[in-house]
């Protein structure tokens, strides 16, 4: 490795830090996040305070954990529309098993994780074996989960929300891991924020510095070519779907232990928010290109806008309109970047 530092090629102008940054897929999301922050910090009084920040960071973090996982899946060339419903499903499994059957809370969480990974594996195997688009396969899983989330709790506990979660023995232990908060400068930093940062860092490391990361970019960018060259396409893709489902479990636990309850419709509709965050963060809808950090910034933009609109006293419904505009803007920007990357010299 000592000889690895070859003399830089004289035909390469020494690229400045700015120049290198501008080539990264997440740069658009970073600039947009800064703009959104400055905008609400100026327009509202509470946004840039410690208390205000702890609220929007919390919103960003629970969305962000999933957005990062969905981004990695999208880089691998697939979608998971069941990702939102999965967060409610995993929470409900833990809730029902503990409050109704008195199962140990950690054991219930393990069961919930195993079920999530199983559903992820089914998603992946169905997509790979049938050759159907993941958009259709996971749309099916999404509806199945949505139905199960409503019907099963109704049949077992007679209602569609978990009650009495806080009275479950040892509830404090997972609560400390997933739902606690520490006080910083007069505001609260929730555990979910650390999970969000951790998941983003891990995903970035895997994508950029491991074999598996190389394979994820490859199967998303050119599946046939990857197979010809010896990349284990099937394993990579099934693993990606399982990872997304596992992240769904994590997001489900973060929600469950921060509010001590979970409802049957939790997470439904969020799947598109994750995809928007990933695309805003620089992921191509066609796969093979994107960034985990970008998706984390996408989630940050979502969280800041979500709370900023409340602080500004506007009608909350403008959030959706804003997201739509941002998505279109991001897609156009990404397409332009991709065309440049593929053809320019």
């Amino acid at each position: 490795m000592a000889t690895a530092t070859a003399a830089p090629d004289e035909r390469l102008a020494t690229t400045s830090l700015v120049g290198r940054l501008l080539k990264r897929p997440e740069i658009g999301a970073l600039i947009a996040a800064i703009a959104v922050f400055i905008f609400f910090a100026v327009v509202t009084d509470t946004f840039a305070t410690a208390g205000g920040a702890s609220t929007w960071l919390r919103t960003s973090s629970t969305i962000g954990v999933m957005a990062v996982a969905v981004a990695v899946l999208m880089i691998g060339g697939e979608f998971d529309l069941s990702a939102g419903a999965m967060t409610g499903f995993t929470g409900l499994v833990v809730g029902v098993l503990t409050t109704e059957y008195g199962l140990n809370i950690w054991a219930a969480m393990v069961v919930s994780l195993a079920l999530a990974l199983g559903i992820g594996a089914i998603n992946g195997i169905l997509v790979m074996r049938t050759g159907l688009p993941s958009f259709i396969v996971t749309l099916g899983t999404f509806f199945v989960l949505q139905g199960v989330d409503l019907a099963v709790p109704k049949a077992i506990i007679g209602q569609v929300a978990i009650q009495g979660m806080a009275d479950v023995p040892f509830y404090d232990q997972p609560k400390a891991v997933f739902g606690s908060a520490i006080s910083v400068l007069g505001g609260n930093v929730y555990a979910s924020v650390f999970w969000w940062i951790g998941v983003t860092a891990l995903a970035t490391w895997i994508l950029l510095r491991t074999k598996v990361g190389n394979w994820i970019f490859a199967v998303g960018g050119a599946q046939t070519a990857s197979r010809q060259i010896g990349v284990p396409v099937f394993k990579t893709k099934v693993g990606l779907f399982m990872t997304t489902a596992g992240a769904g479990w994590l997001a489900g636990m973060l929600l469950l232990f921060s509010v001590s309850t979970v409802q049957a419709n939790t997470g439904v509709g969020q799947e598109f928010i994750y995809i928007i965050c990933a695309v805003v963060g620089g992921c191509l809808l066609t796969g093979g290109y994107g960034s985990a950090i970008g998706a984390a910034f996408g989630a940050l933009i979502y969280g800041m806008t979500n709370q900023g609109i409340v602080y500004a006293g506007w009608d909350n419904n403008w959030l959706r309109a804003f997201l739509g505009v941002m998505l279109l803007g991001a897609v156009l920007l990404n397409e332009w970047v991709r065309k440049r990357a593929e053809t320019s010299r």
């Binding site: 190389n214 970019f217 490859a218 960018g221 070519a225 990349v231 093979g288």
Partner: peptide, 13 residues
Amino acid sequence: VPLMPVWRNFFLG
């Protein structure tokens, strides 16, 4: 894989 850097393509798999 067109979007991947040359060195990643070279060692892919």
